[in-house]
């Protein structure tokens, strides 16, 4: 078992003919992910990846023809909101948006709209999902994690790889690894993923990687304290970040005293979460 993706995932790639879209589609397919279709407006009828994957002009046509249930988006930022709306309206159940730099206005409109539907959005500005040994949707390198019982959820990409790698070095594997992305307005937050891990029989413990900005970690702490039975260990990045500066991620900013790492760490520790001083300590916290 796993969360969000599994053997039944039928993946559609929006922006499959672009450089990044094609490269990562090849990586995903090589990992065993079932890619059933690609979408690039104006290139419908073509085939990519050695003629194995058909390209369609729209998500609606592609989903009807192939039964795709999950979409991953690699389109440029200016087209990302449109691509999400398109996938949502075509009835795609899970939309994973990798694209970085989507305007926050677009994301507020996206959330206001898709919250009325049964679609789940992950991202944007996220590395996607990896269920080791089964499938991956997004850009997480497959070889850095082995199958196991640790669920991982993170706002950051390479920091996640760092932790998966540290777990692997100690012989520990992951059930599923989920990157929720570094933007201030995103589709799925910590609480959504923590709830899924709590219900997932394949997950026994969880690592959560937060960072400065917003209050999602504080909300997660409240959720962990009141709703979760599985142990959670965490790391919060940005303890030395200066206030008022955006640290690479659009959402990683301390504003008017809110979003500080120290507040997040305090809230998590109060909720019984073990917080690592640095990411390589995390595997040991499960003891």
């Amino acid at each position: 078992m796993s969360i969000l993706i599994n053997k039944d995932t039928r993946l559609l790639v929006q922006g499959i003919t672009g450089n990044e879209g094609l490269f990562h589609s090849q990586q995903m397919a090589a990992y065993g992910t079932n890619i059933v279709a690609g979408v690039t407006p104006g290139k419908g009828g073509e085939w990519v990846m050695d003629g194995k994957v058909p390209v369609f002009d729209s998500v609606k046509i592609a989903a009807e023809a192939t039964g795709a249930n999950t979409s991953v988006i690699f389109v440029p930022a200016r087209f990302a909101a449109d691509a999400i709306f398109e996938a949502a309206d075509a009835g795609i159940e899970l939309i994973v948006c990798i694209t970085e730099g989507v305007p926050v206005k677009d994301m507020m409109r996206v959330r206001a709209y898709i919250d009325q539907l049964d679609t789940r959005l992950l991202g944007p500005n996220c590395p996607g999902i990896l269920t080791p040994g089964v499938a991956k949707v997004g850009i997480i390198p497959g070889d850095i994690a082995i199958p196991g019982n640790v669920g991982a959820v993170s706002r950051s990409g390479t920091l996640t790889y760092e932790v998966l790698y540290a777990l692997k070095q100690k012989g520990m594997g992951a059930s599923t690894c989920v990157g929720i992305g570094g933007d201030p307005v995103n589709g799925t937050n910590f609480i959504d993923v923590l709830a899924m891990f709590e219900d997932d029989p394949a997950t026994d413990k969880i690592v959560m990687l937060g960072e400065i900005g917003g209050t999602d970690e504080e909300k997660a702490a409240e959720f962990i304290a009141t709703k979760m039975t599985k142990p959670v260990a965490a790391f919060i990045a940005g303890q030395t970040a200066p206030p008022g500066k955006r640290m690479g991620h659009a959402g990683a900013i301390i504003q008017s005293g809110s979003g500080k790492a120290s507040d997040k760490i305090k809230a998590l520790e109060k909720a019984g979460v073990r917080v690592a001083k640095h990411p390589e300590e995390l595997p040991d916290l499960f003891g």
Partner: peptide, 27 residues
């Protein structure tokens, strides 16, 4: 010099943790 914003922040943090000071954030 780091790749990825989260890891870049983490690198600053760990330099401080081990008694140094970071001159910059760079992703």
């Amino acid at each position: 010099m780091v790749n990825g914003a989260g890891l870049a922040m983490t690198t600053m943090d760990i330099v401080t943790l081990f008694g140094g000071t970071a001159a910059n954030f760079l992703d």
